[in-house]
Simulated scan of single mutants.
Amino acid sequence: MSLPGITEEQIAELLTYATGSSSSQPSLLVGGASDRWYARISGELPKRFGCRTLLVTGVPTTLWSILESFLRNQSFLERLQCPVPRVYGRWPQYGIALIEDFGDIRLVDAISREPKRRNELDENAIDLLVRLHSLPPDPHLSYPARELAFDVEKYQYEFGFHVDTWLIGHHLGVSPTATERRALDGTYRWISETLAAEPFVFTHRDYQSTNLMLRDDGTLGLIDFQDARQGLRQYDLASFIWDSYVSKSDERRYRITQYYRTAAGVTDDPDRFDALLRIAAIQRKLHDAGAFVYTAAHRGKTEYLVWVSDAIGIATDLMIEFHQCHDTGAMLAEWMERKRQAMRE
Protein backbone atom coordinates (compact mmCIF):
# COMPACT_ATOMS: atom_id res chain seq x y z
CA MET A 1 0.00 0.00 0.00
CA SER A 2 1.45 3.39 -0.98
CA LEU A 3 0.74 6.73 0.66
CA PRO A 4 1.02 10.08 -1.15
CA GLY A 5 4.62 11.25 -1.18
CA ILE A 6 5.76 8.63 1.36
CA THR A 7 8.36 5.95 0.61
CA GLU A 8 8.01 2.31 1.62
CA GLU A 9 10.82 2.78 4.16
CA GLN A 10 9.04 5.74 5.75
CA ILE A 11 5.78 3.77 5.93
CA ALA A 12 7.65 0.92 7.62
CA GLU A 13 9.11 3.35 10.17
CA LEU A 14 5.67 4.76 10.91
CA LEU A 15 4.06 1.32 11.26
CA THR A 16 6.82 0.06 13.52
CA TYR A 17 6.27 3.04 15.81
CA ALA A 18 2.49 2.61 15.77
CA THR A 19 2.16 -1.17 15.98
CA GLY A 20 5.59 -2.57 16.78
CA SER A 21 5.64 -4.23 13.37
CA SER A 22 5.88 -3.11 9.75
CA SER A 23 3.70 -5.97 8.51
CA SER A 24 0.27 -4.28 8.64
CA GLN A 25 -0.81 -1.99 5.84
CA PRO A 26 -2.55 1.40 6.21
CA SER A 27 -5.70 1.94 4.15
CA LEU A 28 -6.01 5.26 2.36
CA LEU A 29 -9.29 7.06 3.05
CA VAL A 30 -11.28 9.33 0.77
CA GLY A 31 -10.31 12.89 1.65
CA GLY A 32 -12.13 16.21 1.64
CA ALA A 33 -11.47 19.41 -0.24
CA SER A 34 -8.04 20.19 1.24
CA ASP A 35 -4.51 19.08 0.37
CA ARG A 36 -4.43 16.77 3.39
CA TRP A 37 -4.83 13.00 3.09
CA TYR A 38 -5.73 10.35 5.67
CA ALA A 39 -4.98 6.66 6.08
CA ARG A 40 -6.18 4.25 8.76
CA ILE A 41 -3.95 1.84 10.67
CA SER A 42 -5.69 -1.10 12.31
CA GLY A 43 -4.71 -4.37 13.90
CA GLU A 44 -2.97 -5.18 17.17
CA LEU A 45 -2.06 -1.74 18.51
CA PRO A 46 0.02 -1.16 21.66
CA LYS A 47 -2.03 -0.54 24.81
CA ARG A 48 -0.53 2.94 25.18
CA PHE A 49 -2.87 4.16 22.44
CA GLY A 50 -6.02 2.87 24.12
CA CYS A 51 -7.79 2.36 20.79
CA ARG A 52 -8.19 -0.14 17.97
CA THR A 53 -7.34 2.13 15.04
CA LEU A 54 -5.19 5.18 14.35
CA LEU A 55 -5.11 7.75 11.58
CA VAL A 56 -2.13 8.94 9.63
CA THR A 57 -2.65 12.39 8.19
CA GLY A 58 -0.26 13.98 5.77
CA VAL A 59 0.52 16.79 3.37
CA PRO A 60 3.31 17.36 0.86
CA THR A 61 6.38 18.42 2.85
CA THR A 62 6.27 21.79 1.08
CA LEU A 63 2.87 22.34 2.74
CA TRP A 64 3.88 21.24 6.24
CA SER A 65 2.65 24.59 7.60
CA ILE A 66 -0.94 23.39 7.02
CA LEU A 67 -0.48 20.36 9.24
CA GLU A 68 1.61 22.33 11.70
CA SER A 69 -1.30 24.77 12.13
CA PHE A 70 -3.58 21.84 12.91
CA LEU A 71 -1.10 20.47 15.47
CA ARG A 72 -0.54 23.83 17.17
CA ASN A 73 -4.27 24.52 17.43
CA GLN A 74 -4.76 20.97 18.69
CA SER A 75 -2.37 21.63 21.58
CA PHE A 76 -4.43 24.62 22.66
CA LEU A 77 -7.77 22.84 22.32
CA GLU A 78 -6.60 19.68 24.08
CA ARG A 79 -5.30 21.70 27.03
CA LEU A 80 -8.82 23.01 27.52
CA GLN A 81 -10.26 19.49 27.22
CA CYS A 82 -12.06 20.08 23.95
CA PRO A 83 -13.07 16.97 21.98
CA VAL A 84 -10.25 16.96 19.44
CA PRO A 85 -8.12 14.04 18.21
CA ARG A 86 -5.09 13.24 20.32
CA VAL A 87 -1.71 13.45 18.60
CA TYR A 88 0.61 10.46 19.03
CA GLY A 89 3.50 11.42 16.81
CA ARG A 90 4.67 13.81 14.12
CA TRP A 91 7.27 13.57 11.37
CA PRO A 92 7.71 17.01 9.73
CA GLN A 93 10.44 15.64 7.47
CA TYR A 94 7.84 13.30 5.92
CA GLY A 95 4.87 15.67 6.19
CA ILE A 96 2.85 13.28 8.39
CA ALA A 97 1.37 12.96 11.87
CA LEU A 98 -0.24 10.08 13.77
CA ILE A 99 -3.55 11.03 15.41
CA GLU A 100 -6.59 9.58 17.13
CA ASP A 101 -9.25 8.05 14.89
CA PHE A 102 -12.76 9.44 15.45
CA GLY A 103 -14.29 6.95 13.01
CA ASP A 104 -16.27 7.47 9.82
CA ILE A 105 -19.62 8.87 10.98
CA ARG A 106 -19.82 12.59 10.34
CA LEU A 107 -22.70 14.69 11.61
CA VAL A 108 -24.09 14.85 8.07
CA ASP A 109 -24.14 11.03 8.01
CA ALA A 110 -25.73 10.75 11.46
CA ILE A 111 -28.53 13.15 10.47
CA SER A 112 -29.17 11.17 7.30
CA ARG A 113 -29.26 7.83 9.15
CA GLU A 114 -31.27 8.97 12.15
CA PRO A 115 -33.45 11.94 11.12
CA LYS A 116 -35.50 11.63 14.32
CA ARG A 117 -32.39 12.65 16.27
CA ARG A 118 -31.82 15.77 14.21
CA ASN A 119 -32.92 18.26 16.87
CA GLU A 120 -30.75 16.54 19.46
CA LEU A 121 -27.74 16.47 17.12
CA ASP A 122 -28.22 20.13 16.18
CA GLU A 123 -28.28 21.09 19.84
CA ASN A 124 -25.19 19.00 20.58
CA ALA A 125 -23.37 20.81 17.78
CA ILE A 126 -24.43 24.20 19.10
CA ASP A 127 -23.44 23.25 22.66
CA LEU A 128 -19.95 22.47 21.36
CA LEU A 129 -19.87 25.71 19.37
CA VAL A 130 -20.81 27.73 22.46
CA ARG A 131 -18.00 26.00 24.31
CA LEU A 132 -15.51 26.91 21.59
CA HIS A 133 -16.65 30.52 21.52
CA SER A 134 -16.11 30.80 25.27
CA LEU A 135 -12.47 29.64 25.15
CA PRO A 136 -10.07 32.26 26.52
CA PRO A 137 -6.92 32.83 24.46
CA ASP A 138 -3.78 31.31 25.99
CA PRO A 139 -1.03 33.97 25.98
CA HIS A 140 1.58 31.35 26.87
CA LEU A 141 1.03 29.28 23.72
CA SER A 142 1.86 30.11 20.11
CA TYR A 143 -0.97 28.89 17.91
CA PRO A 144 -2.73 30.28 14.80
CA ALA A 145 -6.17 30.51 16.40
CA ARG A 146 -4.81 33.23 18.70
CA GLU A 147 -2.40 34.91 16.30
CA LEU A 148 -4.66 35.20 13.22
CA ALA A 149 -7.91 37.11 12.86
CA PHE A 150 -10.80 37.73 10.53
CA ASP A 151 -9.76 41.32 9.94
CA VAL A 152 -10.55 43.53 6.96
CA GLU A 153 -7.42 42.37 5.16
CA LYS A 154 -8.41 38.69 5.47
CA TYR A 155 -11.96 39.27 4.25
CA GLN A 156 -10.70 41.37 1.34
CA TYR A 157 -8.24 38.66 0.37
CA GLU A 158 -11.00 36.04 0.31
CA PHE A 159 -13.23 38.26 -1.80
CA GLY A 160 -10.38 38.85 -4.24
CA PHE A 161 -9.16 35.26 -4.48
CA HIS A 162 -12.26 33.09 -4.05
CA VAL A 163 -14.97 35.40 -5.37
CA ASP A 164 -13.34 37.62 -8.00
CA THR A 165 -10.79 35.17 -9.41
CA TRP A 166 -12.46 31.78 -9.10
CA LEU A 167 -16.20 32.39 -8.84
CA ILE A 168 -16.76 35.44 -11.06
CA GLY A 169 -13.81 35.10 -13.42
CA HIS A 170 -13.28 31.36 -13.76
CA HIS A 171 -16.75 29.91 -13.15
CA LEU A 172 -19.13 32.62 -14.32
CA GLY A 173 -16.75 33.85 -17.02
CA VAL A 174 -17.47 37.51 -16.29
CA SER A 175 -15.09 40.44 -16.65
CA PRO A 176 -16.86 43.22 -14.70
CA THR A 177 -17.16 46.67 -16.24
CA ALA A 178 -15.77 49.65 -14.34
CA THR A 179 -19.22 50.35 -12.90
CA GLU A 180 -19.71 46.73 -11.88
CA ARG A 181 -16.22 46.68 -10.38
CA ARG A 182 -17.04 49.68 -8.18
CA ALA A 183 -20.24 47.98 -7.01
CA LEU A 184 -18.39 44.78 -6.13
CA ASP A 185 -15.57 46.59 -4.34
CA GLY A 186 -18.04 48.70 -2.36
CA THR A 187 -19.94 45.60 -1.25
CA TYR A 188 -16.75 43.77 -0.30
CA ARG A 189 -15.55 46.74 1.73
CA TRP A 190 -18.88 47.17 3.54
CA ILE A 191 -19.10 43.48 4.48
CA SER A 192 -15.44 43.32 5.53
CA GLU A 193 -15.57 46.41 7.72
CA THR A 194 -18.91 45.45 9.27
CA LEU A 195 -17.81 41.96 10.28
CA ALA A 196 -14.28 42.91 11.36
CA ALA A 197 -15.60 45.57 13.75
CA GLU A 198 -17.31 43.00 15.99
CA PRO A 199 -15.79 41.47 19.16
CA PHE A 200 -13.63 38.41 18.50
CA VAL A 201 -13.99 34.86 19.81
CA PHE A 202 -12.29 31.59 18.89
CA THR A 203 -13.63 30.80 15.41
CA HIS A 204 -13.30 27.32 13.92
CA ARG A 205 -13.55 28.79 10.41
CA ASP A 206 -15.29 25.74 8.86
CA TYR A 207 -17.89 24.71 11.43
CA GLN A 208 -20.19 22.44 9.46
CA SER A 209 -21.56 18.91 9.46
CA THR A 210 -18.59 17.37 7.65
CA ASN A 211 -16.16 18.54 10.34
CA LEU A 212 -18.09 17.15 13.30
CA MET A 213 -17.67 13.43 13.97
CA LEU A 214 -20.09 11.25 15.93
CA ARG A 215 -17.79 9.23 18.17
CA ASP A 216 -18.37 5.77 19.64
CA ASP A 217 -19.60 7.24 22.93
CA GLY A 218 -22.26 9.30 21.12
CA THR A 219 -20.56 12.67 21.60
CA LEU A 220 -19.31 14.95 18.86
CA GLY A 221 -15.63 15.32 18.04
CA LEU A 222 -14.11 18.28 16.24
CA ILE A 223 -11.76 18.00 13.26
CA ASP A 224 -10.19 20.22 10.57
CA PHE A 225 -9.52 23.20 12.83
CA GLN A 226 -6.21 24.15 11.19
CA ASP A 227 -7.72 27.39 9.85
CA ALA A 228 -9.15 28.53 13.19
CA ARG A 229 -8.66 32.19 14.03
CA GLN A 230 -10.21 35.05 15.98
CA GLY A 231 -13.47 36.33 14.51
CA LEU A 232 -17.03 37.31 15.27
CA ARG A 233 -19.25 34.61 16.78
CA GLN A 234 -21.81 34.83 13.97
CA TYR A 235 -19.32 33.44 11.43
CA ASP A 236 -19.29 29.87 12.78
CA LEU A 237 -23.01 30.01 13.48
CA ALA A 238 -23.67 31.07 9.88
CA SER A 239 -21.42 28.27 8.63
CA PHE A 240 -23.51 25.74 10.56
CA ILE A 241 -26.94 27.20 9.81
CA TRP A 242 -26.25 27.58 6.07
CA ASP A 243 -24.26 24.34 5.82
CA SER A 244 -23.76 23.32 2.18
CA TYR A 245 -24.25 19.64 3.00
CA VAL A 246 -27.34 19.73 5.25
CA SER A 247 -30.21 21.97 4.18
CA LYS A 248 -32.27 23.68 6.86
CA SER A 249 -35.66 25.33 6.75
CA ASP A 250 -36.15 28.93 7.86
CA GLU A 251 -37.90 27.61 10.96
CA ARG A 252 -34.97 25.34 11.84
CA ARG A 253 -32.46 28.13 11.30
CA TYR A 254 -34.48 30.37 13.60
CA ARG A 255 -34.70 27.67 16.27
CA ILE A 256 -30.97 26.97 16.14
CA THR A 257 -30.18 30.68 16.37
CA GLN A 258 -32.39 31.07 19.43
CA TYR A 259 -30.86 27.99 21.02
CA TYR A 260 -27.39 29.44 20.46
CA ARG A 261 -28.33 32.83 21.92
CA THR A 262 -29.76 31.19 25.04
CA ALA A 263 -26.90 28.72 25.51
CA ALA A 264 -24.25 31.41 24.99
CA GLY A 265 -26.05 33.97 27.14
CA VAL A 266 -26.14 36.49 24.29
CA THR A 267 -27.95 39.67 25.28
CA ASP A 268 -27.34 41.67 22.09
CA ASP A 269 -30.32 43.16 20.31
CA PRO A 270 -31.88 40.22 18.40
CA ASP A 271 -32.37 42.20 15.19
CA ARG A 272 -28.76 43.38 15.15
CA PHE A 273 -27.50 39.89 15.98
CA ASP A 274 -29.55 38.45 13.13
CA ALA A 275 -28.36 41.11 10.69
CA LEU A 276 -24.73 40.31 11.48
CA LEU A 277 -25.49 36.61 11.15
CA ARG A 278 -26.87 37.17 7.66
CA ILE A 279 -23.99 39.40 6.60
CA ALA A 280 -21.56 36.73 7.83
CA ALA A 281 -23.53 34.17 5.82
CA ILE A 282 -23.16 36.29 2.66
CA GLN A 283 -19.39 36.33 3.04
CA ARG A 284 -19.28 32.65 3.95
CA LYS A 285 -21.41 31.42 1.05
CA LEU A 286 -19.62 33.54 -1.55
CA HIS A 287 -16.35 32.17 -0.19
CA ASP A 288 -17.79 28.63 -0.32
CA ALA A 289 -18.84 29.01 -3.94
CA GLY A 290 -15.40 30.22 -4.99
CA ALA A 291 -13.66 27.57 -2.89
CA PHE A 292 -15.72 24.82 -4.54
CA VAL A 293 -14.70 26.08 -7.98
CA TYR A 294 -11.04 26.35 -6.93
CA THR A 295 -11.08 22.83 -5.47
CA ALA A 296 -12.52 21.41 -8.68
CA ALA A 297 -10.03 23.24 -10.91
CA HIS A 298 -6.91 23.03 -8.75
CA ARG A 299 -7.35 19.60 -7.15
CA GLY A 300 -9.55 17.86 -9.71
CA LYS A 301 -12.37 17.31 -7.20
CA THR A 302 -15.23 18.20 -9.52
CA GLU A 303 -17.84 16.69 -7.19
CA TYR A 304 -17.81 19.99 -5.28
CA LEU A 305 -19.22 21.90 -8.25
CA VAL A 306 -22.71 20.59 -7.44
CA TRP A 307 -22.81 22.92 -4.41
CA VAL A 308 -21.84 26.13 -6.23
CA SER A 309 -25.31 27.16 -7.43
CA ASP A 310 -26.92 26.73 -4.00
CA ALA A 311 -24.13 28.71 -2.32
CA ILE A 312 -24.54 31.61 -4.74
CA GLY A 313 -28.32 31.45 -4.38
CA ILE A 314 -28.14 31.71 -0.59
CA ALA A 315 -25.67 34.59 -0.77
CA THR A 316 -27.60 36.62 -3.35
CA ASP A 317 -30.96 36.08 -1.62
CA LEU A 318 -29.44 37.45 1.59
CA MET A 319 -27.67 40.32 -0.20
CA ILE A 320 -30.94 41.59 -1.61
CA GLU A 321 -32.20 42.09 1.97
CA PHE A 322 -29.60 44.85 2.59
CA HIS A 323 -29.65 48.15 0.73
CA GLN A 324 -25.83 48.31 0.97
CA CYS A 325 -25.48 45.27 -1.30
CA HIS A 326 -28.91 44.84 -2.91
CA ASP A 327 -27.77 45.84 -6.40
CA THR A 328 -24.61 43.74 -6.22
CA GLY A 329 -26.64 40.73 -5.15
CA ALA A 330 -29.03 41.20 -8.07
CA MET A 331 -26.04 41.52 -10.41
CA LEU A 332 -24.47 38.28 -9.16
CA ALA A 333 -27.81 36.49 -9.42
CA GLU A 334 -28.14 37.65 -13.04
CA TRP A 335 -24.64 36.40 -13.87
CA MET A 336 -25.44 33.03 -12.31
CA GLU A 337 -28.66 32.77 -14.32
CA ARG A 338 -26.71 33.44 -17.51
CA LYS A 339 -24.36 30.61 -16.53
CA ARG A 340 -27.29 28.24 -16.01
CA GLN A 341 -28.79 29.17 -19.37
CA ALA A 342 -25.45 28.64 -21.12
CA MET A 343 -25.13 25.21 -19.51
CA ARG A 344 -28.62 24.24 -20.70
CA GLU A 345 -27.87 25.19 -24.30
Rank of each mutant, 00 (worst) to 15 (best):
M1E: 07
P4T: 05
G5T: 07
T7W: 08
Q10I: 03
I11R: 03
L28E: 04
A33P: 03
A33D: 05
S34T: 09
D35E: 10
R36K: 10
W37P: 02
E44Q: 13
K47P: 02
L54G: 01
T57C: 15
V59T: 08
L63A: 07
L67Q: 06
L67E: 02
F70H: 14
R72D: 05
N73W: 07
L77C: 02
E78D: 15
P83C: 08
G89R: 09
Y94G: 02
A97I: 02
L98K: 04
I99T: 01
I99W: 01
D101C: 06
I105T: 13
I105H: 05
R106F: 08
R106A: 06
L107P: 01
V108H: 11
E114D: 15
R117Q: 15
N119H: 11
E123H: 14
E123L: 08
N124G: 08
A125Q: 04
I126W: 06
R131N: 13
L132C: 03
L135C: 08
L135Q: 06
L135W: 10
D138L: 08
D138F: 08
Y143I: 06
R146M: 08
A149P: 01
V152C: 13
F159P: 01
F159Y: 15
G160D: 13
D164K: 14
T165F: 05
L167P: 00
H170Q: 15
G173C: 05
G173R: 06
S175F: 12
T177W: 10
A178I: 12
A178C: 10
A183P: 00
D185S: 14
R189P: 00
I191K: 01
I191W: 02
A196D: 06
A196F: 09
A197T: 13
F200Y: 15
Y207M: 04
R215Q: 10
D216R: 12
D217H: 14
L220V: 07
L222V: 12
Q226V: 03
D227K: 07
R229A: 09
Q230R: 15
G231H: 03
L232N: 10
L237M: 11
L237F: 11
L237T: 03
S239W: 02
F240W: 12
I241F: 03
W242H: 13
S244N: 10
K248A: 09
S249H: 13
E251T: 10
R253K: 15
Y254C: 09
Q258H: 15
T267R: 14
D268T: 05
P270I: 11
P270C: 13
D271M: 14
R272D: 10
D274C: 12
A275V: 03
L276H: 10
I282G: 00
Q283A: 07
K285E: 11
K285D: 05
D288E: 10
A289H: 03
A291T: 05
Y294K: 15
T295A: 09
T295N: 04
A297F: 11
A297N: 08
A297M: 12
G300I: 03
E303I: 10
E303G: 14
A311D: 00
I314C: 04
A315K: 01
C325Q: 03
D327V: 04
G329R: 01
A330G: 06
M331K: 04
M331P: 00
L332A: 00
E334S: 14
E337L: 07
E337H: 13
R338M: 09
Q341C: 07
A342F: 09
M343C: 10
R344D: 12
E345Y: 12
